[in-house]
Structures are given as structure tokens and as C-alpha cells.
């Protein structure tokens, strides 16, 4: 669309140098905006990651009564396996349940001494995983319906729904908040770029007038200004990426150094996260930069 000839690049460079202070100001503000945006993006991406992890582990556990029969267990297993919403059905014996329970207990706990394999209070259970975490509620009610037939040997159906719901709600809140911040910061960045380019255009209005009289096309006149806007956006995007990357490494180091282990293990890896962010920032910077320039110059092209 545009003739990116040498003179276009030269003009853009010249004008950046001439307005170096204003250019710097708009780069700094846009970088600041992008950094704040980046912080929210990092939080959102991590929440999504943790949510996915939790959802992946989300399950319904069907506990059996102490005196259930093999027939009841087989019937239940059979019933569960026929349900096509269910991904897997896993049997947990009394022994495994006890072993898992003991692992969670401190060895010095008085309880640890009283429980042993001869006196095992843990129930047998079936662990049900859904193909889609959203359908766990439906599966649960299906199992409840099955239990209403009576004589099923089911003691209790456990489902950690509230936990996931809270996380989903929080994630949703962060998403909305993030969207709001993005919009506000976009408007600010847009006006900063717009003003910078407008100053440039104003300084060169005489030249633009001459160009129009000699028969330069609008695109030709516009190109260096759009290039300048895009360049400001790119510099801001790169600076912001660097800042967010450094910050994220620092925070991750701090978290893992402070033994908050279960959290950090599930956090997004910095390289993957920064890879996504840099692309997003660049696209954002170029877009805001060129739109700002485009609007700034439009008025001056009416000759």
C-alpha cells in the first residue's frame, strides 16, 4: 500500500530526532501503560493456568459404606463406566485410602499411631473424572439419582465444586478488571501518540503543503508519519516486555525462595508467557501507534 522508499524512512527518522523529547515522553508513557497491562496479563494467564490445573484434577469421589457388597461395587462401577460424560473411573481400596491419608498426616500426630491396617476406618471409593470439568455437576446429580434406587452401597458423594467456583469467579473478575484497564490505558496511549505525531505534522505542515502542490499522494505523505507512530509503539512494546519479563523472573524467584511450593509449581513458565506477551505488545503498540498517527495527520492532508 505504501511506498517504503528510502526517503520515507529518512523522514521518519529525522522527525523522531527532531522531536526526541516528545517521542521519548510518549514511549515512556506507552511503556508504563503496557507494563501495567502486562502485570494484569501475567496474573490472568497464571490464574487460567492454575484453574486449568485444578479443573484437570477435579473429580467426584463416591465413598462406599463399610459393609457394602462386591455386587454393589460392581453394579456401581458398571453404571459409571457406561456414562459417556465420564473420562475415567478409578477404584481406591481401603489400604490405598489409608496410605494417602497417612501421607497427609504428620508422623508425630497422635492419630498416626492409632490407625493401622487392622483397624482401618477409611472407606473404599470410586474416583470419577469427567471429560469436561463443567459437566461434573451433571454427573454428580446422575449418581445421586442412581443412589435413590436404594441398596447401592453408596455412603457419600464428594465433589469439590465450591473451590473451583471461587477460582472461576476470581478469574472472571480479574478478566473484567483487566479489560477495563486495557481500555483506559489504550485511550491514554492513543492520545499520547496522537499528540506526538500531531506536533511532528505541525512542524512539517509547510512541507506537507508543498508536497500536496507538487502532486504527492496522501499515502506518500502519510507513510513517514505512520512509520514514526509504529516505531514509537514498537519501542514501547519491547521496553515493556523487558520490564515485565524481569519483574516476573524476580517474583517467581521470590515465591520459590519462600517455599510457597504448591503455587509456583503450577505457574506459567516465563519463556512461554513472555513469548505470548511480546507478540501481543507488538501488535498493540503498532496498532495504537499507526491509528494515532493516522488521525493526527488526517486534518493536515485536506489541502
Amino acid at each position: 500500500m505504501f511506498n517504503l522508499r528510502r526517503s520515507t524512512i529518512r523522514d521518519a527518522g529525522q522527525s523522531l530526532r527532531r522531536n526526541s523529547l516528545m517521542s521519548l515522553a510518549s514511549i515512556i508513557s506507552m511503556t508504563a501503560a503496557l507494563v501495567i497491562l502486562g502485570i494484569f496479563l501475567v496474573i490472568t494467564m497464571n490464574i487460567r493456568q492454575v484453574t486449568q490445573h485444578v479443573e484437570g484434577n477435579l473429580r467426584i469421589q463416591v465413598f462406599m459404606t463399610q459393609n457394602c457388597t462386591q455386587q454393589q461395587k460392581d453394579a456401581l462401577k458398571n453404571y459409571l463406566e457406561q456414562n459417556n460424560l465420564i473420562k475415567s473411573v478409578q477404584y481406591e481400596s481401603k489400604t490405598t485410602a489409608l496410605k494417602n491419608f497417612s501421607k497427609q498426616l504428620d508422623s508425630s500426630s497422635s492419630l498416626a499411631g492409632t490407625i493401622n491396617s487392622k483397624n482401618n476406618p477409611m472407606p473404599e471409593s470410586y474416583i470419577v473424572r469427567a471429560k469436561n470439568a463443567n459437566q461434573l455437576g451433571k454427573i454428580k446429580s446422575q449418581i445421586e439419582k442412581y443412589n435413590q434406587q436404594g441398596n447401592t452401597g453408596i455412603e457419600y458423594i464428594k465433589y469439590g465444586r465450591d473451590y473451583i467456583q471461587a477460582l472461576t469467579n476470581f478469574s472472571h473478575f480479574i478478566n473484567m478488571f483487566c479489560l477495563f484497564v486495557v481500555i483506559v490505558l489504550s485511550v491514554i496511549s492513543y492520545f499520547l501518540i496522537y499528540n506526538t505525531i500531531k506536533l511532528t505534522v505541525f512542524a512539517r505542515r509547510k512541507e506537507i503543503g508543498i508536497m500536496k502542490y507538487v502532486g504527492a499522494t496522501d499515502n506518500y505523505i502519510r507513510a513517514p508519519f505512520l512509520l514514526e507512530g509504529a516505531f514509537l509503539g514498537i519501542i514501547a512494546a519491547l521496553a515493556a516486555t523487558l520490564a515485565v519479563r524481569t519483574g516476573y523472573y524476580y517474583v517467581l524467584g521470590y515465591l520459590s525462595g519462600n517455599a510457597l511450593l504448591p503455587i509456583t509449581a503450577n505457574l506459567a513458565s516465563p519463556s512461554a508467557l513472555i513469548g505470548k506477551i511480546v507478540i501481543f505488545f507488538l501488535a498493540y503498540g503498532i496498532l495504537i501507534g499507526t491509528i494515532g498517527s493516522h488521525v493526527a495527520i488526517r486534518k493536515f492532508l485536506d489541502v
Binding site: 509547510k206 512541507e207 503543503g209 508543498i210 500536496k212 502542490y213 502532486g215 504527492a216 496522501d218
Partner: peptide, 22 residues
């Protein structure tokens, strides 16, 4: 059309009283 005006102006050379040099 607006986009054709530059091509019209290329057929016209203009000399201004105030020179308008860069």
C-alpha cells in the same frame, strides 16, 4: 476523486509569490 487530485496536480507546475522552499 480525492485520490486522483495528486495526479491532476502533477500536470500543473505552480510558482508561488512566497517561494515555499524547504
Amino acid at each position: 476523486s480525492k485520490s486522483q487530485i495528486p495526479y491532476l496536480r502533477r500536470k500543473l507546475g505552480v510558482v508561488f509569490q512566497d517561494f515555499r522552499l524547504l
